[in-house]
């Protein structure tokens, strides 16, 4: 029970507790009965629970089981490979983009007093242009469906192996998202961090790299991990550009075994297991981050960033 829900009503007395228990049992029975009559019965009538459909997936005595799971394993490895490559690429590109955008913002304040007027204006114009371009890229690629970036990365690049277009398409979208996560982490830091770095004589680049970036990473770690869940889920779009991932493998096997529902339920379960583990990791890291922060005096300002709900973006 979340703490909030217990605030909404009084601690139940014996009568309310009894009533709640009765309601809980009745509703539970109703839900199960609904599931039985509306889902189980029709599916059974259509023969969806027969050994022919489930056997190759779950029956250890079935001769096809090792072959089927071997293919599923290969498919999952293909999916995880693409996801891992996309994660590495988007983390690198995202961090780079975040640092570049912070530096450009920094440079916008400079007046280039020692240079001739024309050069100073040129440099400031260049800065404005670069800021505009990076801002534009962020807004555009954040607003596009990742399916569109994957598909057109595939068609425009013309690479025949679909792995790289998939990785590129995923990275374009996710590096922009990760850049925004890291940037908001850096901007959410207490100002004293940056001022201290400046007063120690660090250059802007050093200050960002040595002081702001590591702290932003730490605060934003939960959000970054849940973005990894998003990347892993989006990797399944690869089958649309003919990448031999878990879904492509599943489709091939369904052609032979004729069991689409069973196959997708099993594969869905695999995904739920992996992603659930990742989300638990994110929640654990979030608890740790906020606990560590709570001991420090600067906590108040960063608490906000750390307690943001884990990214909801699907």
């Amino acid at each position: 029970m979340s703490p909030q829900s217990s605030v909404l009503y009084d601690a139940p007395g014996p009568r309310t507790r009894r009533r709640t228990t009765i309601a809980a049992v009745l509703i539970g029975v109703a839900l199960l009965a609904g599931a039985y009559y509306l889902v189980y019965r029709p599916l059974e009538a259509k023969g969806q629970f027969t050994a022919v459909k489930w056997g190759p997936l779950v029956d250890l005595a079935d001769p096809n089981l090792p072959l089927v799971w071997e293919r599923i394993r290969l498919g999952i490895i293909a999916t995880l490979t693409a996801a891992a490559l996309a994660i590495v690429c988007s983390l690198l590109a995202g961090t780079l983009l975040a640092v570049v955008r912070m530096l450009l913002k920094e440079q916008a304040k400079r007046r280039y007093a020692g240079l001739p007027a024309a050069a100073a204006y040129a440099l400031r114009g260049l800065n404005t242009a670069l800021r505009g371009i990076t801002r534009f890229c962020v807004e555009v690629f954040r607003g596009l469906p990742v399916l569109v970036t994957i598909f057109f990365a595939w068609r425009i690049s013309g690479i025949s192996d679909p792995l790289w277009p998939l990785v590129i398409g995923l990275s374009i979208y996710n590096s922009v998202v990760i850049a925004e996560i890291i940037r908001s982490g850096m901007e959410g830091l207490p100002r004293g961090q940056r001022e201290a770095a400046d007063s120690l004589g660090l250059t802007p680049f050093q200050a960002i790299l040595l002081v702001q970036l590591p702290q932003a990473f730490r605060i934003m770690l939960p959000a970054l991990i849940s973005q990894l869940v998003v990347i892993l889920k989006d990797t399944t779009l690869g089958y649309i550009i003919t990448y031999e991932d878990i879904l492509a493998v599943a489709q091939q096997m369904i052609q032979i075994l004729q069991n689409p529902i069973q196959m997708y339920v099993i594969i869905g379960a695999v995904f739920i297991a992996i992603n659930y583990a990742l989300s638990q990791l994110a929640a654990y890291v979030q608890r740790r981050v906020s606990r560590v922060r709570a001991h420090k005096p600067a906590a108040a300002a960063t608490e906000l960033a750390a307690s943001e709900p884990v990214v909801l973006d699907a």
Binding site: V39, P42, Q48, P260, I261, Y264, V265, I272, N275, S279
Partner: peptide, 21 residues
């Protein structure tokens, strides 16, 4: 649902609903 890829939700809907009649 949150941990399923949307692709699988789509597959389950388009194969499952007809089977549910």
């Amino acid at each position: 649902v949150r941990n399923l890829p949307l692709t699988i939700v789509f597959f389950l809907t388009s194969f499952g609903l007809p089977e549910l009649g």
